[in-house]
Computed example of a mutant assay.
Amino acid sequence: MAIPSSAPRYALTRAVVVSFFLLFISFTLLSSYHPPFKATLSKFSPFITSQTPHPPYTVAIIYLVRLSHADELLGSLASVNVYLPLRDPWPIILFHTGDFDDTPVQDDFLASLREKIGGQSNRSQRDFSDRVEFVKLDWVLPEGIPHTKEELDPVSPSSWPGYHHMCAFYSTKIFFNPRLQDVTYYLRMDTDSLFLEPLCYDPFEVMHARQRSYGYLGIGNDAPVVTKGLWRFIRDYADSHPEVESQLNASKTWKWPTGDVDLDDVPVSGYYNNFEIVKLEEFRKPEVKEWFYHLVQYPEGFYKWRWGDAPLRWVTTQMFFDMDRETERLCGIRYYHPYNYLEQCECVPLHP
């Protein structure tokens, strides 16, 4: 009897081994491949991580910046990177008026930022600098405002018109900026703002869990020299809007000037809003928008008398918010700004 050939069996075995080997190589290559991360953010989508479900809100950290203050901005961003415990690496938006228009300028700044912080953030798998966006603002003097200091004679000529533009921007325009259209909360920082120690909670989670519309650290006041006419302006608005007058009169923290006093000598309270967390939709309600429209119809308030965004933020929350239920003093945040004096209160974790 002829002995059967082993060739077909060998060929079959070899084919199986080769197929298995190729399959193993393919799986190894696929599992080790990670597509490159795109540094350019989509216009409105924040970063998300795959480790945790996306929260039911969106966030942006915002600055208004100038190239001449780049060094202190780098320090502020470094403190955000180290000490702000966010569950998601949200975008950081640098609003500017042209200083950062050119791509080489942006690239140089981001390279300096990477050098400053030493690579990735403490919380994110993404490089911290990849979260930064540059958004240009086009500021022009409103109709009716002279284009020279000599003709206008503003109260604060040394800072005109840049600081006055800033006050108008943060008082009214910020809420309607297209870049923030789909953002739930923003955290404002100034270039000379610094976190000094780790926070014991995510402040946005606090705002969301407690259903707050405005978060702050402290309250001071603006000097009467830069609030001339503001008390009369508020009084006139309240007189023509009974619901606003009723709200102010019912507030435990609102005080009208009383007695025989010159209103222009009475300071107006204001938040230290170089740090603030704002729920944007609450400042877009029709009744609030009407108040903002009234403000911008009197541009002299910003551009001649230098009404500030700090007292106007205080006035706005007093007019339209339940101060007990809708505002939150964010305790335990160790924060520095040259012009703030903050009484510290204990940091209590949201989830002990």
Score class of each variant (00 low, 15 high):
Phe47Gln: 12
Val296Arg: 05
Tyr335His: 08
Lys228Pro: 06
Val135Asn: 01
Thr191Tyr: 15
Thr172Glu: 07
Ala39Glu: 15
Gly98Leu: 06
Pro286Val: 01
Gly259Glu: 14
Lys304Ile: 00
Thr227Trp: 04
Leu248Trp: 03
Arg313Glu: 09
Ser79Cys: 01
Phe204Lys: 09
Pro56Asp: 09
Thr184Pro: 05
Val226Ser: 09
His34Glu: 15
Lys149Trp: 02
Thr258Asp: 15
Phe169Ser: 01
Asn273Trp: 00
Leu194Ser: 11
Cys347Ala: 10
Phe47Met: 11
Val59Arg: 03
Leu152Phe: 06
Phe24Trp: 14
Cys347Pro: 00
Val155Ile: 04
Arg325Gly: 00
Trp90Thr: 04
Ile62Arg: 05
Trp90Ser: 03
Arg114Pro: 03
Phe195Gly: 06
Gly220Trp: 02
Lys116Ala: 14
Cys347Gly: 07
Arg66Ala: 15
Asp262Gln: 06
His165Pro: 12
Trp139Ser: 03
Arg210Ala: 08
Ala168Arg: 12
Lys285Asp: 04
Leu29Ser: 14
Glu281Leu: 08
Val17Asp: 08
Val266Arg: 11
Gly215Phe: 05
Arg9Tyr: 08
Tyr214Glu: 00
Glu326Leu: 04
Val268Leu: 04
His294Arg: 12
Gly162Pro: 02
Met323Asp: 02
Ser112Met: 11
Cys331Asp: 13
Ser251Thr: 04
Ala209Pro: 01
Asp130Glu: 11
Gly301Phe: 06
Ser159Cys: 13
Glu243Val: 00
Thr28Trp: 12
Pro178Glu: 12
Pro89His: 06
Arg131Ile: 12
Tyr339Ala: 11
Val140Asp: 15
Met319Glu: 06
Met1Gly: 15
Pro157Arg: 08
Tyr185Gly: 03
Glu281Asn: 13
